[in-house]
Design a protein around this nucleic acid. Sequence first.
DNA 1: AAAACTACCTGAGTGC
DNA 2: TGCACTCAGGTAGTTT
Length: 270
Amino acid sequence: MPELPEVETTLRGVSPHVIGKRVREVIVRDKRLRWPVPDTIHEMEGCRIDSGIRRAKYMLFGTTKGTLLLHLGMSGNLRVLTPDVPFKKHDHLAITLDSGKQLRLHDPRRFGAALWIEGDPMQHALLKDLGPEPLGDVFSAAHLHAACKGKTAAIKLVIMDSHVVVGVGNIYASEALFMAGIDPRKPAGKVTRPRLEKLVKAIRDVLTASIEMGGTTLRDFVNESGEPGYFAQTLRVYDREGDPCRVCGTKIKRIVLGQRSTFFCPKCQH
DNA sequence: AAAACTACCTGAGTGC
DNA sequence: TGCACTCAGGTAGTTT
């Protein structure tokens, strides 16, 4: 579910409700997430949340005492409710604010995470080795070219490698490669520089467009208000096996690359 | 070093 | 209905 646009959508929706607010109580209903929710998360109680930023698919909420790191995994969502709303199954974490609102992390598959970081969050093991943000200046054709040089791995796997660039998940990798006209199986080292230029632009464009539409809801993604995103209607290849290519009418193919479903148009992509 | 694969977990959908 | 099976948006970690 949540890739970068969905995390960004969630963060933008949640931020106005949490920035400047004080944490009244942290309720851990089930600590069994990807990593056990640490008891130190209660350190947040009494703290004022000063900032909310995204790094890759992680959300970071800063206080003077430490930083709350949240990840939505494959099936997570973060909603703004009030304490009187009954908990649902898989509501694992709730953070009550002095405004009377309550943030809730809901994650059926429990691949998400909630951690408390003391010190510089960017030096945390999960964050320090990440590649550049796809929407930032560091991610460029020159950067991607250097990362692809000599690699025999499929280009799709390279753009999904978080050491190369963060935030490009399975949906948007297929979409960006379609937009750039590149076969996802193509060895990264053999993709020409001009086509890498197109790919960088395609990655930026598809992520930006999706953010503007509130993300992609295939099955269960909802934003902080419980509403779906509308980018799924715009998907060109993802989850469209057998359907006609929106450009040439050829049937979209599905293959598996790196154990993940990959969709492309065999005529438009080389 | 890089590629290949495993693990974590629940729920929806499919075929019998 | 029910059972067995497949598949799913992420990513750290292990093995080859």
